[in-house]
Design a protein around this nucleic acid. Structure first.
Lengths: 275, 275
DNA sequence: TCGTTTGGTTGACCAGGATCAAGTCGCGCC
DNA sequence: GGCGCGACTTGATCCTGGTCAACCAAACGA
């Protein structure tokens, strides 16, 4: 099954004010992709995501060393590519606002989406093994990110033990998150898969202070189906069924969870027993 | 779908000589689970896996600091549990010989196998996020491992930049390996899934110097089916079909790849086109 | 040597989800 | 407004893989 990759918009820096919601620090005002140190330090210290991100439990002086190497990227528009499979000079990215997908391309022209990434989540861990990035990361909507070139990160982490430790923590956190994907795909009932996905997204939104019952899906049905290992028609039917049962209120990509308990039951239902 | 977890054999240390094949260094001779420093240093330096493992590109003096914290575990028998979901004091493990599976338990009593791990591979990355291990690791056959308590590892990595770097590399390597699981599960044709698995295992065996065409499966059909997101009968039928087509020679758990090209074609066949 | 057990294979049948094919809706554009 | 397009929905049909059940064979113990 192939996903038609939408045409890429140019990735050139955009100048107008971004629509970030997760952070409320000063806007970048220069066309450069690297803001000056003063602005940056402030951004890490003030960032609403700092507790989820690298700065967590790092003191003021050490935080400056981190600031030295963190680059704040210009916002990426929908379809903008953060990195591609095989690209050298890998970086670690933290999503500040918006959302991305990561995917690999398969021999016959198919793709497999590996994950969706919302604010506070790391992207690019696959690039640290020394062979460049192993997947492609693309924005699902206008998104802003912080970039940490891996080479510098490694250096600074060696000098700042707290950062090293936190880096291990967040890497492990992403590793565990990734493990949820095969758990979901292992379910043989399509309904379970969707329910697991919705609950997981709901929890992640809660983690960044959003209403966990109001899901604003940034991915298309096609992308969601691909991620779930289903076809688009099945996903569409599942949404309709959940809407008919009163579990969800679905309005295009806006999904409201009306009966969290019912959704949980669907997610946990095992494959064999009572279908 | 539930996997019946086999009865655990006692995990008590066993004294007789182990059957390791990957390493040919001196056998542990004391009932203690920690061998003395002299023996250990030698083991890391001499270990056939050192290039895949943490010592890679670490010099003599630094290697000793690593040796200080690496514990060589008594071999685990089939069914022996390395760690369980939720267990505190997480460690990183490197498989020296044998093989393990990692899995999570699901609400309704089901399980999902997350991966099979052969010599040279890391197990336990899920435990570094600070909430203990998030899955259970169990030996599929008699296996020996090296253990690195994460707390000490973190300390030493802070002092040995080369180790820190190598640690990032191997973590990323395991991260990428893990990403192959959903790629495989995303295929809708059962045959593709099995073919992808067999090829991947074959490649991993090649990486540790084994014959890549002679697969000695250490997991049961049940475990394999669970990993692939299929039922045991389907897996059994697939093996029979591949045998009938002359692609494989299957004798219980010994699988010989007779037509690597045919297997590759099956693995890469996309879901839509031609069947 | 024979039961017994455990793991695996094979067959018959069925159903859930894929496929194929029409619609429908929302939205930008002229 | 009306057109056209892409994203999504819905229906009808088919087929792969799940289910249920019987069978087989290697390993083990009495």
């Amino acid at each position: 099954m192939s996903i038609p990759i939408p045409l890429r918009r140019p990735i050139a820096p955009v100048r107008e004010a971004s629509t970030d919601t997760a952070c409320d620090n000063p806007r970048v005002s220069k066309p450069s992709t690297i803001v000056n140190l003063r602005e940056l330090r402030q951004s890490c210290a003030d960032c609403a995501l700092s507790q989820l991100c690298l700065p967590a439990s790092i003191g003021g002086a050490d935080l400056e060393r981190l600031d030295d190497i963190v680059r704040q990227r210009m916002p990426l528009d929908r379809g903008g590519v953060l990195f591609r499979e095989g690209s050298a000079h890998p970086s670690l990215f933290v999503v500040r606002s918006g959302s991305l997908k990561t995917f690999v391309s398969l021999p016959e022209g198919d793709t497999q989406i590996l994950g969706f990434h919302i604010a506070g989540e790391l992207v690019g861990l696959d690039g640290l093994a020394g062979n460049g990035h192993q997947c492609t990361a693309e924005a699902l909507e206008r998104s802003s990110l912080c970039e940490v070139p891996f080479a510098s990160l490694s250096d600074v982490a060696a000098k700042v033990p707290g950062l090293q430790h936190q880096l291990f923590r967040v890497m492990s956190r992403e590793f565990v998150r990734e493990q949820q994907h095969p758990v979901m795909m292992g379910r043989k009932q399509a309904m379970s898969r969707l329910a697991i996905f919705l609950r997981s997204l709901s929890e992640r939104l809660r983690g960044i202070g959003h209403d966990p019952l109001e899901l604003n899906l940034s991915m298309s049905r096609q992308e969601l189906a691909n991620y779930l290992g289903l076809v688009i028609e099945t996903v569409s039917r599942l949404f309709s069924r959940l809407q008919a049962q009163g579990v969800l209120a679905v309005d295009r990509r806006i999904v409201r969870i009306l009966q969290p308990a019912a959704l949980a039951a669907l997610a946990e239902k095992s494959d064999d027993e009572g279908k």
